[in-house]
Structures are given as structure tokens and as C-alpha cells.
Design a protein around this nucleic acid. Structure first.
Lengths: 180, 180
RNA sequence: UGACACCAUUUUUU
DNA sequence: AAAAAATGGTGTCA
């Protein structure tokens, strides 16, 4: 079965303030080909943008007979699936551990359904703020990354992930460009 | 009769974990003079620290011919006296509403005896996490505070309470400083 | 069931 | 340095 790798990121300038603008971006890599998506909206949150990036990326795929690898720096997104938060939510009427209603329920339901529709989906947590500005020090950055990250990448994988994570971040910012 | 105002707070980094460190702090105001106390210990709980802050503050007073006002953000501490939990405990052999033994009995007994020894003691519940970082927006914070708090303060009182509550929090953190 | 604290984690920002 | 968006938990009581 073919594998798709999805690198996504979200941003929200003025998160928590009354007026704000958010953006999201995703890079999909399939069979050596690269697809870029991005978008944005006003009056949102950082977490909504992180969620939206994954949802829009999955929605853009034309077939579900795929193994999907999703890379995100959002514990909010990744842990929901890696730690099975969503199963508890479905069983207890969408209450979080503080007994309050789970936020962004509609987006979560959309994402859960999307994920279930694919042959296989795996979520990978990566660190935010990867730095590719010092290519000469790439080895240093690589060690630092592996020391701080659950995932352990080879040098080649690290460069790929960093590059695409960076690109996803740029796309997220592009998503709110008209407002910025 | 002279009045003493006591502002206290407790903290416990890693509360509920196997290894943790707690701290407590108290600010006493008497006759325009200010006294600061703090301390800390390992392997404790947030509630023990909240209790200890009040106990140590009262123990530090040299006379009991005083009216004492105690400000705390802990419902655990304040409601025991405002709602008279302690009287039920004394009558029913120190069982809580689930018929289980009341926790921290020794500390409670110490506190109850201390309180009884003073001419008059009143407990006031205040909200945690007061914010004094935006003095320009003090009016906004003041409204927000009074909207969310049982107590209603004048603006001047609010500033005093916020300041001392903040200070007590800093002292509590100072109490666990050597470990931090 | 409710309430108040105390934390842990990752982002997003100012 | 400090706040918001979100999740997970314990300490305690009624």
C-alpha cells in the first residue's frame, strides 16, 4: 500500500485576544510528489488552526486506500490519537478530565471520522521551532532534536521533517497573509 | 482591639506525584507594619501547604488579644470555618461526608485550637491568580475580580488584597526554592 | 454531583 | 517575563 506523509502546522497571531487571525499549512508528500495547502480565518485559536491543518490535508486526498503518516508539533492533536483521548470522550458524553465540555467538538468529530476512513493513520509528535537557519550546524541541530523529541530520526529523515515542518509553518503564515 | 490581617498561600510543585516539593507563604499586616513568613518541605500536598500557611502565621503572633482577618484562596481552609465543617468532625469522630477519616486531622486540630485562642478570627475566601501586572488596567481587573468573587472589595481594598496575595504566592514559591 | 485549589504537558502568542 | 488555547491528573471537602 502506498504511503502519504503529511506535515502540518497552525498559527494564530493574537491568540487569546479579542481580535486575531489564524492560519494553517500542510505539506503532503506522495510518491516523491509534493502538494502544498494553506488557509486562514479571523477570530480563531491556535488549536483550531492546528486541527484544521490536519483535517484539510486529509480531505484533500482522493483515495483512502493509503497509509498516512501525520507529523504535527501539537500535543493537542497528536495525543488525542496516540493516548486515545477521543475514545474516552465518545464514551463519557464529550467531557474532559475536569468534567467540562470538550472544546472544538465538531472539528474533532470530523477528524475522527476522516482518520477512521483511511486504511491506516499514524500520528507523530515532533518538536516545534525546528531551526534550519544554520545548515552548517545541521549535525548540532540534529542531536539537539533527537535529545528533545520522542521520535528518533536518522539525519536524512530529520532534514526532511525539518524542511517540511518549516514549509508548513510558512504556509500557515501565508494563510493569514491578507490580514497581516 | 487591634486588628491583624493575614494573607496566605500554599503551593506544591508536582502535587499528586510521588516526589514533590511544597511551599507556603504568609504576609501579616498589623498597625501599618508588615511581616513576611515562608517555608517549605518535600513530600507534601497542596492542601497541607495551604493549612500550614495559616497555622504558621497565627503561631507567629505574640498576643491573642487580637481581631484576626485571614485571606486565603483555599476553599478547603476557608470553608472549614465559614461553613462549620470542623464542628461536625468533632461531633462524629472526624469522619467526612463519605464516612471516611478526615485527612490532615493533626493540622486541623492545631489550627482549630489556635483559632479558638484569639479574641476573634474571620476567614475570607479570595480568588487565586490575581493579576497586578497591568496597573493601567487595574479597573478592568477590579471589575473582573468582583464579578467572580464572593467578597466585594472597594478598589483600594482590592489593590491591597491583590498585592499581598501576590506576595504570599511568591513567598510560597520561595519556600521550595532550595529544591527548585 | 458540586466547589476551590495544586500541578503536569504541548503549542500559540504578547 | 507573562497570558491564552487545550488536554491529562491529584488534593480535599460538602
Amino acid at each position: 500500500m502506498k504511503t502519504v506523509e503529511i506535515f502540518c502546522d497552525g498559527a494564530c497571531s493574537g491568540n487569546g485576544k479579542e481580535t486575531n487571525v489564524g492560519g494553517w499549512g500542510a505539506v503532503l508528500v506522495y510518491n516523491g510528489q509534493k502538494k502544498e495547502l494553506f488557509g486562514g480565518e479571523a477570530s480563531t485559536t491556535n488549536n483550531i488552526m492546528e486541527l484544521t491543518a490536519v483535517i484539510e490535508a486529509l480531505k484533500s486526498l482522493k483515495t483512502t486506500s493509503l497509509e498516512v503518516h501525520i507529523f504535527s508539533d501539537s500535543a493537542y492533536v497528536v495525543n488525542c490519537f496516540r493516548e486515545g483521548w477521543y475514545r474516552k470522550w465518545q464514551l463519557n458524553g464529550w467531557r474532559n478530565s475536569k468534567k467540562e465540555p470538550v472544546e472544538n467538538k465538531l472539528l474533532w468529530e470530523t477528524l475522527i471520522n476522516l482518520v477512521a476512513s483511511f486504511a491506516k493513520v499514524e500520528f507523530y509528535k515532533i518538536k516545534g521551532h525546528l531551526n534550519l537557519d544554520a545548515p552548517a550546524d545541521i549535525q548540532k541541530w540534529y542531536k539537539k532534536f533527537n535529545a528533545n523529541n520522542d521520535l528518533q530520526f536518522s539525519l536524512e529523515e530529520f532534514i526532511v521533517v525539518s524542511t517540511y515542518n518549516h514549509l508548513a509553518d510558512e504556509l500557515a503564515n501565508k494563510g493569514m497573509a491578507p490580514y497581516k
